[in-house]
Computed example of a mutant assay.
Amino acid sequence: MNTSADDGSPERAGYRRSAGTPRGEARRRELLDRVTEDLAVNGLVDFSLRRAARAAGTTHKVLLYHFDGVDDLLRQAVLKLRERRTVSAMAAATGGPAGRTLADRVRAMWSMLSGDEPGLRVLDEAIGLAMYDPGRFGWLGREASQLYLPSLVSLCPVDWSDRRKLEVAEMILGALRGFLVESRTSGDAAGIAAGFEALVRALEREEAAAGQDD
């Protein structure tokens, strides 16, 4: 990812941000949509304000009018992709027949998350960037957790305690994130599948134990 100083910021370049008028907000959404689609297709490598401007069909000065520099633009685009991913994952997890177990729901979610649709890979790249430079990009990982955890908590049985829901949601998030990173790095499909089945069995045991505690 190109984060050189020539990407600028509104303060340094002397531009002002959109004032939030309906017309300005509509234009901002249009630009963000175009940049997000470019990010989904081409990933984080060499992402810069100038590349974003080309994708949006405008100039970097116009982008600096609407966004607080390249980091803000990246944050907004990644958030947009994550929201799409969360909606798709939750639709997969909550669809189907009633009475599905948590393990069933996580299996359906994983089937969607492990695909190779545009936008999925770049979100996994974002976690790698957060690990590479946590001082600048740690928010890529933190914001992912803040977005996904409530959704995972909502998949847990309603009669579980809040603490149990959070603990299990954290386990699911950590495991699935690890599997995704592994799939993008080693490509060990057999090993990932084995690990996922172990996660499913752990969830089945957790549900069985919770039932015995009632």
Results as ranks from 00 to 15, higher is better:
residue 2 N to D: 14
residue 2 N to V: 06
residue 7 D to N: 15
residue 9 S to I: 07
residue 9 S to R: 14
residue 9 S to C: 09
residue 11 E to Y: 09
residue 13 A to S: 14
residue 14 G to F: 05
residue 19 A to L: 06
residue 20 G to Q: 03
residue 22 P to D: 13
residue 22 P to E: 12
residue 22 P to V: 11
residue 22 P to Q: 14
residue 24 G to V: 11
residue 24 G to M: 06
residue 27 R to H: 03
residue 27 R to S: 01
residue 28 R to S: 01
residue 29 R to F: 00
residue 31 L to Y: 00
residue 34 R to D: 02
residue 35 V to R: 03
residue 36 T to S: 11
residue 39 L to M: 03
residue 40 A to P: 13
residue 40 A to E: 07
residue 41 V to W: 04
residue 41 V to Q: 09
residue 43 G to M: 03
residue 43 G to P: 04
residue 45 V to L: 09
residue 47 F to C: 02
residue 48 S to Q: 11
residue 49 L to T: 13
residue 50 R to T: 13
residue 50 R to I: 12
residue 52 A to F: 00
residue 53 A to G: 07
residue 57 G to L: 03
residue 58 T to F: 00
residue 60 H to K: 11
residue 62 V to M: 02
residue 64 L to H: 04
residue 69 G to V: 09
residue 73 L to A: 00
residue 76 Q to S: 01
residue 83 E to M: 05
residue 84 R to Q: 14
residue 87 V to W: 11
residue 88 S to P: 00
residue 88 S to Q: 04
residue 90 M to F: 09
residue 91 A to L: 05
residue 95 G to P: 10
residue 96 G to E: 05
residue 100 R to Y: 02
residue 101 T to H: 01
residue 106 V to K: 09
residue 107 R to D: 15
residue 110 W to P: 04
residue 116 D to N: 15
residue 116 D to Q: 14
residue 118 P to H: 08
residue 118 P to Q: 10
residue 119 G to K: 00
residue 120 L to F: 11
residue 122 V to N: 06
residue 133 D to A: 07
residue 133 D to T: 11
residue 135 G to T: 15
residue 140 L to M: 10
residue 146 Q to C: 09
residue 148 Y to K: 02
residue 148 Y to V: 07
residue 149 L to E: 08
residue 151 S to N: 14
residue 155 L to T: 08
residue 155 L to H: 05
residue 159 D to E: 10
residue 160 W to Q: 13
residue 165 K to R: 15
residue 167 E to C: 09
residue 167 E to Y: 11
residue 168 V to C: 06
residue 170 E to V: 15
residue 170 E to C: 10
residue 170 E to H: 15
residue 171 M to G: 06
residue 172 I to V: 15
residue 173 L to S: 14
residue 175 A to I: 12
residue 175 A to N: 15
residue 177 R to I: 10
residue 181 V to R: 05
residue 182 E to P: 05
residue 185 T to Q: 05
residue 185 T to R: 05
residue 194 A to K: 15
residue 202 A to E: 12
residue 203 L to R: 10
residue 205 R to A: 13
residue 209 A to Q: 12
residue 210 A to E: 08
residue 210 A to H: 05
